[in-house]
Each structure stands twice: as structure tokens, then as C-alpha cells.
């Protein structure tokens, strides 16, 4: 009964999608439409692709859009991640532990040695991804997620080790503060929030793009420590 009703509802939803999107130009037709919009100077994607390299000296246009043209949006996104981590901590605060770490099986020598061997390599890959976010695919969010996966490995593989939540909180707060301070320096120097006030340098060099790599490093540290904090909270340790 429940399945039939759900399938009926799905049919209605699918018909609604089809009706909504039947008139929209997609595919080749959509591309032609977007070329028409280029001529009218209202297609922002085309504009960012054609002018972004000269304006920001940042090879990755997605990074340029995320941190420069829509930097305020990214500040809001980082705030949402922070609030979700805070809410998770508040929901799980003072929880009884189901199985304490002593009862869980001790990791074997191979497992714990392998974890210790892999952890610095994962950190290196994560830091590489967010430092080179303006040159290659990747960036602060992706690199932060890779770093958090390293902490997840420690949580799963070496049960004796606990994450230092005070240090995680400090890293998170300081990097968030660094983002806002960089944005406010732009406001003080040139009169607009998140202004790219540093010299932009040469394209394709590591030191290029002005404040974009600095903000991405701050975001990488923030996302990495925040997701590690979420993993630490979810792993069921009592504090």
C-alpha cells in the first residue's frame, strides 16, 4: 500500500519536472541561447571565462568565481559549515558512550603502523590540493576534506589515539578569523569587502592571484579542522 502511494507520488513529481523543464532550452539549443546572451553581455559565465584570467591572474576560473566574484557567498557557506558543526556538537553533547575504546578490539601492529605511515602522506596531499587551488583542480574545501579523511583514518585505525579537540577548535577559529580579516583589509584599503588588494603576480606561478591562495589556505585549514571535529564528535568518545 505504502509503496503504491509512493510510486503514485513519484509519478506526479516526475510529470511536474517534465512539464517544468519541457520549455527550457537544453543541450545544443541551450548553447546557442547562451551564445546569444554573450552578445547581450548578460551571460556571467562567459564573461568570467573570457575576462577572469586578466582580472585576477588566477588560472582556475572556478576558484576565481568562488573567492573573488562570489567571495561573500563563500563566507556564508563557511558560516553554514561552522553552524552545522556547532549544532552537531550541541546535539551530541553529554552522550553516554556505547562501547568504550578499551572494550573495542586493539588494532594489530600492521594496522597501526600502516595508519602512522599513511597519515603524513594524506596530510601532504591535502595541503598540496589547497595550496594549488588557484592553479589546478581542487581548493580549500577539497583539500580540507582530504585532511579530515586522514583524521578519520587515525580515528578508525589507532583506537588509542584521541584527537586534540582544543587544538582543532583553535585552528578552526583562527582560520575563520583570517578569512574575515583578509576581507576587512580589502574594505580598509580599497573600499570594498574582499577586494583583491595584493599584487596579482604572473599567471601560472604559485604566488599569483593576490589574496585568493591566502583565503583558500584559510578555508582549507578551517574545513579540515571542522570536519575532523565532526568525525571526532560522531565517533562516540565521551568527553
Amino acid at each position: 500500500m505504502r509503496k503504491q502511494i509512493s510510486l503514485l507520488l513519484l509519478l506526479i513529481v516526475a510529470a511536474g519536472f517534465a512539464l517544468c523543464l519541457a520549455g527550457a532550452p537544453f543541450g545544443a539549443e541551450g548553447a546557442r541561447e547562451s551564445r546569444r546572451l554573450v552578445k547581450d553581455n548578460v551571460n556571467y559565465g562567459r564573461r568570467y571565462v573570457s575576462k577572469g584570467l586578466d582580472e585576477n591572474r588566477c588560472a582556475n576560473i572556478v576558484t576565481s568565481v568562488v573567492l573573488n566574484y562570489r567571495g561573500f557567498d563563500t563566507l556564508g557557506e563557511v558560516t553554514i559549515l561552522f553552524i552545522a558543526a556547532l549544532g552537531l556538537g550541541a546535539v551530541l553533547y553529554g552522550r553516554r558512550a556505547g562501547a568504550s575504546p578499551d572494550e573495542a578490539q586493539r588494532p594489530s601492529l600492521i594496522l597501526s603502523t600502516g595508519c602512522r605511515l599513511l597519515f603524513p602522506l594524506i596530510m601532504l596531499v591535502g595541503i598540496y590540493i589547497f595550496i594549488h587551488g588557484h592553479l589546478s583542480p581542487g581548493g580549500g574545501f577539497q583539500g580540507g576534506a582530504v585532511i579530515a579523511s586522514g583524521f578519520l583514518l587515525i580515528c578508525l585505525g589507532c583506537r588509542k589515539k584521541k584527537l586534540n579537540s582544543v587544538a582543532l577548535g583553535a585552528a578552526e577559529s583562527l582560520s575563520g578569523l583570517a578569512f574575515v580579516l583578509l576581507a576587512l583589509i580589502g574594505l580598509a584599503v580599497g573600499g570594498s569587502f574582499l577586494l583583491n588588494f595584493l599584487p596579482t603576480g604572473k599567471v601560472y606561478a604559485l604566488f599569483s592571484g593576490g589574496i585568493i591562495p591566502l583565503i583558500y589556505i584559510a578555508i582549507g585549514v578551517k574545513v579540515g579542522s571542522e570536519l575532523s571535529g565532526i568525525i571526532d564528535n560522531l565517533s562516540g568518545e565521551v568527553r
Binding site: I80, L81, A84, V91
Partner: peptide, 28 residues
Amino acid sequence: DPVPQALVLTAIVIGVSVLALALALAIK
């Protein structure tokens, strides 16, 4: 077009935080 990619970057992060919060509520 880079703009939808940038928006999806935002949406993925928000999806992860919503997922984490939902799992925390499931634990509770």
C-alpha cells in the same frame, strides 16, 4: 560555464553539513 560549478561547490559542502547533522540526530 564556471558559475554552476562554483554554486555546486557550495551546495556539496552544505550537503555534507546537513548529512552530518542528520546523522547526529539519528544517533540521538
